[in-house]
């Protein structure tokens, strides 16, 4: 599948925190519309910084990032808002409102598009409800729709977060280590869900992962960062064990040879 349109365009980007060496320094990076990209690298390599600069939460110290042809830091406020709300975020810690129900949490995804005063009173339009319901169906949480978010398991909470991102009707989904706080079975489940959602809606997915073997299995394209620099950009098949070894050298945290044993398969997991 060849991607023609560029969704995310990064040129000579540099992000520094304070006077230290730049946390991120990327000369050229283009991500096409509908691509499924995994970002890997040891801790502190700049994965989160890259993801947050795409969302516009981290200000580049040099260079530029364009999303759908718009530079979020120079665009007019209105245009910037319009682009930004199409960039859905998924976090390691889910960040759901624990005391709200699944439906309410998902409806929060529509806030950017909805009428302000009505939403403050808790009134959502039929259209918002339709969007939220279809997102909930997609992640398979119809049964739990009126349950409070804090009564759900970690994997289910991440499914709610995926639905919330979907309710934004995103053109890009940015997932920052979405499975790092899940057990292996749920990891499998959530990654499959994200992949399904990605291909069905043809959204661009940029996802950082702590475990390289997952990136190899799920992504179409892998970016590897080390010390804030892009050291690998290519299909998972080109990511040999030697390359990984090199990438993680000195960070003997991750076992590269094989995936951890999954105790149950994702199919057997109750949705």
């Amino acid at each position: 599948m060849k991607k023609t349109l560029t969704m995310i365009n990064i040129e000579y980007l540099e992000v520094s925190y304070g006077r230290k060496a730049p946390a991120l320094s990327i000369d050229q990076l283009q991500i096409g519309r509908g691509e499924h990209v995994a970002v890997i690298g040891p801790s502190g390599a700049g994965k989160t910084t890259l993801l947050r600069s795409i969302k516009g939460y981290v200000r580049p110290s040099q260079g530029k990032i364009e999303v759908a042809g718009v530079n979020l830091w120079t665009a007019r406020r209105r245009e910037q808002r319009q682009i930004s709300r199409r960039l859905g975020l998924i976090y390691q810690q889910f960040h759901l409102a624990p005391r709200l129900t699944v439906l309410q949490n998902v409806l929060c995804g529509t806030l950017g598009a909805t009428s302000r005063w009505r939403s403050l009173l808790g009134c959502f339009s039929a259209e918002d409800l339709r969007i939220a319901w279809s997102a909930i169906r997609e992640v398979g949480l119809q049964e739990q729709v009126h349950q409070r978010a804090d009564t759900l398991s970690g994997g289910e909470q991440q499914r709610v977060a995926v639905a919330r991102a979907l309710a934004q009707q995103p053109s890009v989904i940015i997932a920052d280590e979405p499975v790092s706080s899940l057990d292996p079975a749920w990891t499998e489940d959530v990654l499959k869900l994200i992949a399904t959602v990605q291909s069905r809606h043809d959204v661009t997915l940029v996802m950082s992962l702590h475990q390289p073997h997952l990136a190899r299995r799920f992504a179409e394209r892998v970016l590897a960062l080390r010390n804030g620099r892009l050291v690998f950009d290519g299909p998972p098949s080109a990511l040999s064990d030697d390359r990984l070894e090199e990438l993680y050298r000195g960070n003997n945290v991750i076992s590269l040879d094989r995936a951890p044993n999954t105790t149950r398969s994702a199919e057997a997991t109750p949705a």
């Binding site: 709300r85 960039l87 976090y91 759901l96 929060c108 806030l111 598009a113 919330r164």
Partner: peptide
């Protein structure tokens, strides 16, 4: 994080 997640939806 929750505040940011809401911000992220616009």
């Amino acid at each position: 994080g929750l505040w940011e997640a809401m911000d992220s939806s616009g």
